[in-house]
């Protein structure tokens, strides 16, 4: 039974990783005061671009880079429209998703039936062979470690660096930040592009590691879940990790419960569990209003134009 639990945890890690990437990127975007609802579209374009790159060049690293680059490109469209042309962030993000679904399907047409064996796993001699712990901590693909490192790095960046402080200041009050001489638009540009890169990376993880293939719409709503997780985390990076693993965990555990053959609950109700659990946990951790207010970027979604 312990063996099964260990294996289930390994599956959960894979299921949670794309959510971690997309959500941590969006967290930085939102911290700067921008709400980009186009995560799903950026993920898909990232997924198809990385798969194309791997297919053409055979290089996994180029694949990952291509995914990130594609995400950044879509984010650039979003940034230009919302930051320069002041278009509505909510609507532009949704339009970006429609656009991304279309573009990715168009790019992906030659990739039907193309196979890829998936990202290699990192095997460390001796360490990987330690029973239980060795398999828990070693032997994942490299991106799993990157996702955790990224959360730590973002957390450190936001809390401990001057640049992070400026980013938060811009997200809390762009007018005040502008008055202090901080380049509001440039900060938001950089944050938005970072978010795009992360969403692209999440897409790359989908098409290169999670289910190594390209099929249209393969993100199947994960971009939306990532958006919800940022809210769930009340804009704290460590909680993004917690949320992604909670959501991924319950998704996997309900599959295990079904496979065990001992649970007589209709599968549709079982499939509701990750969504319901996320709501319930959010309710439990939202009691402390002050804490949320401290972390939530106050000027999120609001347009800024420097009045010089």
């Amino acid at each position: 039974m312990n063996e099964t639990i260990l294996l289930a945890i390994l599956t959960i890690i894979t299921a949670a990783t794309p959510l971690v990437f997309a959500a941590i990127g969006e967290l930085v975007v939102e911290k700067s005061g921008v709400l980009n609802l186009g995560v799903e579209g950026m993920m898909l374009v990232g997924a198809v671009s990385s798969f194309t790159a791997v297919h053409v060049t055979g290089s996994a690293s180029l694949g990952v880079l291509a995914g990130m680059f594609a995400g950044v490109m879509l984010a650039l469209i979003f940034a230009f429209l919302t930051l320069n042309l002041q278009s509505s962030q909510v609507a532009t993000g949704l339009a970006l998703t429609i656009f991304g679904i279309g573009v990715s399907a168009l790019i992906g047409q030659p990739l039907i039936g193309v196979a890829y064996e998936g990202l290699p796993k990192v095997q460390i001699p001796v360490l990987s062979d330690i029973p239980v712990l060795g398999r828990l901590f070693f032997g994942h693909d490299i991106l799993v470690y990157c996702s955790i490192a990224l959360v730590i790095a973002v957390s450190w960046f936001l809390k401990r660096t001057r640049a992070g402080l400026i980013l938060r200041a811009v997200g809390d009050s762009h007018d005040a930040a502008h008055a202090l001489g901080y380049p509001v638009i440039r900060v938001r540009y950089l944050a938005t592009l970072f978010g795009g890169g992360c969403a692209g990376l999440a897409g790359a993880y989908l098409s290169m590691a999670y289910a190594p293939m390209w099929v249209e719409n393969m993100s199947a709503g994960r971009g939306w879940i990532a958006l919800a997780l940022v809210v769930f985390a009340s804009w704290q990076p460590s909680r993004v990790l917690f949320g992604a693993y909670l959501f991924g965990g319950i998704s996997i555990l309900q599959l295990h419960a079904q496979a065990s053959g001992t649970i007589n609950i209709p599968s549709q109700l079982m499939s509701m569990l990750p969504y319901l659990a996320t709501i319930i946990v959010l309710v439990l951790i939202s009691r402390d209003q002050g804490r949320i207010r401290r972390n939530a970027p106050a000027s999120i979604g609001k347009a800024f134009h420097p009045t010089t």
């Binding site: 429209l81 532009t92 339009a95 970006l96 429609i98 656009f99 573009v103 047409q109």
Partner: peptide
């Protein structure tokens, strides 16, 4: 896919 791209463009410009 093409209609999706076109719809996306239309929305971008309208916004």
């Amino acid at each position: 896919a093409v209609t999706g791209v076109f719809q996306g463009l239309l929305l971008f410009f309208l916004l």
